[in-house]
Amino acid sequence: MNPAPVLSEKIKRIITCTGAAILIVSVTLYLALPVVALFLRTTPDLFFSTLSTPEVMSALFLSLSTSVVSLGIVILVGTPFVYVHCRNDYPGKVIIDTLIDLPLVLPPAVAGLALLVLWGRAGLLGHYLSLFGISIAFTTLAVIMAQIFVASPFYLRQAKSLFEQLDPCFEQTARTLGASPLRIFAKITLPLTANGLISGAMMTFGRALGEFGATIMFAGNLPGVTQTMPLAVYVGLEGNLAVGLTISILLVIISFAIMIAVRLLARWEAVNV
């Protein structure tokens, strides 16, 4: 037996393993350290005492309520929209496909400015609304509209992919059995795609909760009216850092919970469906 090649193999393996370990540890640290730093910068006492302050409670309530409303609208309007879009061919379908994806690559600040120049008091449509005394920009409604614009692609893309991948034989069979399109959608398509849709909804909720750029441009930063949690973090940087830290930690916990829920749902689906 020749010991040299064996030694060389061993060294090669040690180098490969060390390289892989360094890569995994460095990427993990890069992603985890900023989050850890947030938790280390505060104390449990400070966190809980700041949590009950009016600024934090107001931002928390506003963010949660607007995100829930945004998500509800995205689900109620988006689900049938994507279904109709997927099941029909019509002129300009490719353009609609691109529009669905556009907010994902558009800088949120640009999205906010776009909403402002459309719905703002001097905007393309806002100008006419203002004649009737209706103002959208810098209201809670503007927060919801900004969240829908920025976060809806997460749900719409997921729904589109699910509806397109669903084996057409189920819907076709249901048709031959005499079911109306509405019944097929409610009894076949929705249940067969429900888990994936819930995952998409969770991601949309998380994105709406963290929305900053479009909101500050279109809705402003009015405490209790448009100051959502990310905006309160920004304000906290200039004033009370403890408020910023507390809200940031809350957002980290919520985001983590959403990601874990999505993973658990995917695992459950893989086992049960």
């Binding site: 084996d167 034989c169 189920f170 076709q172 069979t173 249901a174 048709r175 031959t176 059995l177 005499g178 079911a179 109306s180 076949i188 249940p191 067969l192 469906v273």
Partner: peptide, 19 residues
């Protein structure tokens, strides 16, 4: 329309509704 044709049609792979 398909839903009014009164045809019993078993597609390939039976297509039972799994849920």
């Amino acid at each position: 329309p398909t839903e009014n044709r009164r045809i019993g049609y078993v597609l390939q792979n039976s297509a039972v509704f799994p849920h």
